[in-house]
Write a protein that binds this DNA or RNA. Structure first.
Lengths: 190, 190
DNA sequence: GGATCAAACGGACCGTGGTCCGGTTGTATT
DNA sequence: AATACAACCGGACCACGGTCCGTTTGATCC
């Protein structure tokens, strides 16, 4: 491993928090796509350059905002009450997981969209889900290319796919859930 | 049905062709994300406003460019040689379809990305694929919510998913194909 | 062939994401 | 505590997507 990166300076860390808080506040009140970088900068009382140094891009900032709720969700998967959390049989957990992920994606749709590539790829947000599904599949005795099988199961829950179905084709969420359950049962093999 | 929309004026139609040709030329030579709207406008010898009136947005223009190759692909699915085209048994056709779609998505990745929402949703590009898969599934005697099952099968071929796997995780295309075949067999039930 | 009117045209203009660089502030060293 | 250096700060600046509106052009009807 290379030497660890130099620690963040105190003022820098403080500004990160300030900016993040300001961004979150603005997103909640005005809605994601009314939040410009200039707005965030002035709301946080810093220069625009600071925003971009800390968060790389608008997408990066949005990803950081998204990350807070995402972390919360992950916590409830790892340690929350069953059937989402541990304690329930694997199949029940898997189904609960899918439903929860589906709802979560729809709820923070606009934020995910604004986060773009930075949202899904980095921070291993998708990687966590994949790992969890892989674990449950193994638990269920499924054989094969587990990483890719997990990806295949997760793919229909991706926002791009969901939006097409919910917004364009007006399919109710319950039907999406039912169809996903069906998919999972077929893949697992009952 | 409402009265049909007024026909396009001659100069408008001519300009659409000119613009589309210019855009295609520029995309091929310089690469998608070096193509600005101003560039296309001056290359086509028209004003910027004309571009936006014809194609709504940059995404719309890119979608139109993409549409040409997409149409070609659809033709080879409907009427090309087997196993992609008609003549082969349904399962073979389905697998060939998946592989072909996967490759096609990767080939025009940047264009699809540039087309954004306009690319996948409109023009029923995705709708065509869904319809075709639905047809093949029915042919294979699969029962259940066919439209959603088709979507679920198609989802892992979506560009967002593929890019994560190919670029981020360095998974070779052959393995993706094999995994997709596996998925399909599980869903169909051999 | 004019007259008429809707539709298409084009380029000046604006907002926003993103960069850059001179000045400032925090941190390590003696 | 003073010095030195790196990291941080901020706002002027740029490029690009998108809009607007006065002008031109092509279809239609007499």
């Amino acid at each position: 491993m290379a030497d660890s990166p130099p620690p963040e300076r105190a003022d820098a860390a403080r500004n990160r928090e300030i900016i993040l808080a300001a961004a979150l506040r603005l997103v909640e009140t005005r809605g994601v796509d009314c939040v410009t970088m200039d707005t965030v900068a002035s709301e946080a009382g810093v220069g625009k350059g600071t925003l971009f140094r800390r968060f790389e891009s608008r997408e990066g900032l949005m990803a950081a905002v998204l990350n807070t709720s995402e972390t919360q969700w992950q916590a409830s998967v790892i340690g929350g009450p069953p059937p989402l959390g541990p304690g329930a049989p694997p199949m029940e957990r898997l189904l609960a997981f899918g439903h929860s992920r589906l709802r979560a994606n729809l709820v923070s749709a606009s934020l995910i969209e604004a986060a773009g590539r930075a949202g899904q790829r980095s921070v291993a947000a998708m990687s966590f889900a994949n790992m969890h599904v892989r674990y449950l599949l193994r638990e269920l005795g499924v054989e094969g290319d587990l990483p890719l099988l997990a990806t295949a199961i997760l793919a229909p829950l991706e926002l791009v796919v969901l939006e097409q179905q919910v917004e364009r084709e007006r399919i109710p969420v319950e039907r999406l859930e039912a169809a996903w359950d069906d998919l999972v049962r077929r893949v697992v093999g009952h």
